[in-house]
């Protein structure tokens, strides 16, 4: 078990390193040139000499390998960076944003709680709704309730997410003003503001994710309710509720953990459109804003690395959970 975790962590680490190398290479070999953008911005006229001095300052003349090793070193020790003057970038340093001209790591730390708040609330909401409706639909399979739930889910799934979110925003916020103004306020400042600002994005995300969740849950429940051990449970004289919600549910929970765990990891890495639309100053919005001209590479680098770490760790945690939940699984 311990050996398994160590091995998995090592693989995870390698994957993250690989992702960061590829990101770095793509930026360096790509068309986006932060130096020339900066050069034009400052003086209006950009001479070749000026451009070269900026490139020299930023270290862009030193090539990919040198830059990457500087980056890696910066992850462990504080680093001087030159970007329109000298700045100290504390370890772990992911660079200085071309936009805000500030080191990105503290900004990430500042923005991430918004994304986490958004993800946690949304997951809790849609997991409760989706799994409840899904298991009830399976329990009353073929009934009017079942068909209604599946029908509504199908319709919602057919609507693209951005349409759903936009309509919710226009109708509920702009026209009817039912929901309080959205935005992120730290929980520690005011739990009420925190919750009210996130309420609509939670509901919208839950609305978008619950149908698929419901369908998975219903499918796994229908499957487990058809198993022989369900017949055994009935033959013992257990009540129908006990049979369905103890034996049936227990088996369906296991594959659901995998699905929800991975979805959660992805949500934690940033919900681009939701954050943008509802003005939640989180990772998703930040990373999409970094895609201007020039591409704000340090921002993209830290958000991309975070996403890779989350997904790789999410996978590991889900697999460990599986082994905890299914006694037949032995990790080796």
């Amino acid at each position: 078990m311990f050996g398994y975790i160590v091995r998995r962590l090592m693989t995870a680490f390698l994957v993250v390193v690989l992702v960061s190398m590829v990101t770095f290479t793509l930026f360096f070999k790509g068309p986006s040139d932060p130096a020339s953008a900066l050069c034009e911005e400052t003086g209006g006229r950009c001479t070749a000499a000026e451009l070269n001095s900026i490139r020299e300052q930023m270290g862009l003349n030193d090539g990919l390998v040198v830059n990457y090793s500087r980056f890696v070193k910066g992850l462990f020790v504080d680093r001087e960076m030159y970007y329109q003057g000298e700045q100290m970038c504390e370890a772990p340093c992911f660079g200085i944003s071309y936009g805000s001209r500030q080191p990105v790591t503290p900004q990430f730390v500042e923005k991430w709680p918004a994304t986490v708040s958004l993800a946690v609330g949304a997951v809790l909401l849609y997991v409760i709704i989706g799994m409840t409706l899904g298991s009830l639909a399976a329990r009353f399979r073929g009934s009017f309730f079942d068909r209604a739930v599946v029908g509504v889910a199908t319709v919602i799934t057919a609507v693209p997410y951005y349409v759903l979110a936009l309509v919710a925003w226009i109708v509920l916020v702009l026209q009817l003003s039912i929901f309080p103004e959205t935005g992120y306020h730290p929980f520690t400042d005011s739990p009420v503001l925190w919750a009210s600002g996130l309420l609509l994005p939670w509901v919208v995300l839950a609305f978008a994710y619950a149908p698929a969740n419901m369908r998975y849950m219903r499918g796994y429940m229908v499957e487990s309710l058809g198993e022989d051990y369900i017949r055994t449970a009935r033959a013992k004289g257990m009540s129908q509720q006990g049979v369905v919600f103890k034996h049936g549910l227990r088996a369906a929970i296991v594959p659901m953990t995998t699905i929800v765990g991975l979805e959660f990891a992805v949500l934690l890495a940033g919900t681009v459109f939701t954050e943008f639309l509802f003005e939640i100053d989180g990772i998703g919005w930040w990373s999409i804003n970094s895609l201007g001209n020039p591409i704000d590479f340090p921002v993209l680098n830290i958000t991309g690395t975070a996403a890779a770490v989350l997904i790789v760790l999410g996978n590991l945690i889900v697999d460990l959970l599986y082994a905890v939940l299914d006694p037949r699984v032995r990790l080796a």
Binding site: E227, R231, T232, R250, A251, L325, P327
Partner: peptide, 16 residues
């Protein structure tokens, strides 16, 4: 009335 079934592996819940 009690019943026992053909395949005891599938007749028992794997997680309990």
């Amino acid at each position: 009335v009690a019943m026992i079934f053909q395949d005891p592996l599938s007749a028992m819940h794997p997680y309990y």
